[in-house]
């Protein structure tokens, strides 16, 4: 069953705050093979003008994980999770995520369209500090393969 196009523009409730931990940054950086000391060593981060460790560019996926699950498992939207593949991902940064940031995620459905029998869902997530500073925007495209494909 195709996704409900009425959901374009739907805004999901803002996530609970995510506190960015220094050890979580180090764990994530190790997991993606990073060697750059700015992700591991506070002095290296300070030397570049940051007040603490900064996170690798795709760390936002950790911050937004809960919010993306809310959309993916929204029963009213009707996404068949077993048929979903991640098709595109992009980030627009104001600044890097930094240890100590307390971040909230505001997710909206930006577009729904059907291409060759496959539903394509575009979501935009604004990631901001609890004090209202915009940090980055994450745009994801998920494709739900049609039953016949």
């Amino acid at each position: 069953m195709p996704l409900n196009a009425d959901f374009i523009g739907r805004v999901y409730p803002v996530s609970a705050p995510y506190l960015v931990g220094r050890e979580k940054i180090r764990e994530f950086a190790r997991a993606v093979g990073e060697k750059n000391p700015v992700f591991f060593d506070r002095e290296a981060a300070r030397a570049l003008g940051y007040h603490d460790l900064i996170a690798p560019p795709t760390f936002a996926t950790v911050v937004a994980m809960e919010s993306s699950h809310v959309v993916m498992f929204d029963p009213d939207l009707g996404l068949d999770f077993t048929r979903v593949v991640h098709a595109e991902q992009s980030y627009a940064y104001v600044r890097p995520i930094c240890a100590g940031d307390e971040l909230i995620v505001s997710t909206m459905i930006d577009n729904i369209r059907t291409v060759a029998g496959n539903d394509m869902l575009t979501t935009k997530a604004s990631i901001d500090t609890v004090n209202g500073e915009h940090v980055l925007t994450a745009t994801s495209v998920l494709v739900s393969r049609g039953a016949d494909s």
Partner: peptide, 20 residues
């Protein structure tokens, strides 16, 4: 990493996007 290791400071990244 090919880009951020080249520039040194990963914070200079303004946009990054891919298709899988």
């Amino acid at each position: 990493r090919v880009v951020t290791d080249w520039v040194g400071d990963p914070g200079v990244l303004v946009e990054y996007g891919v298709r899988f």
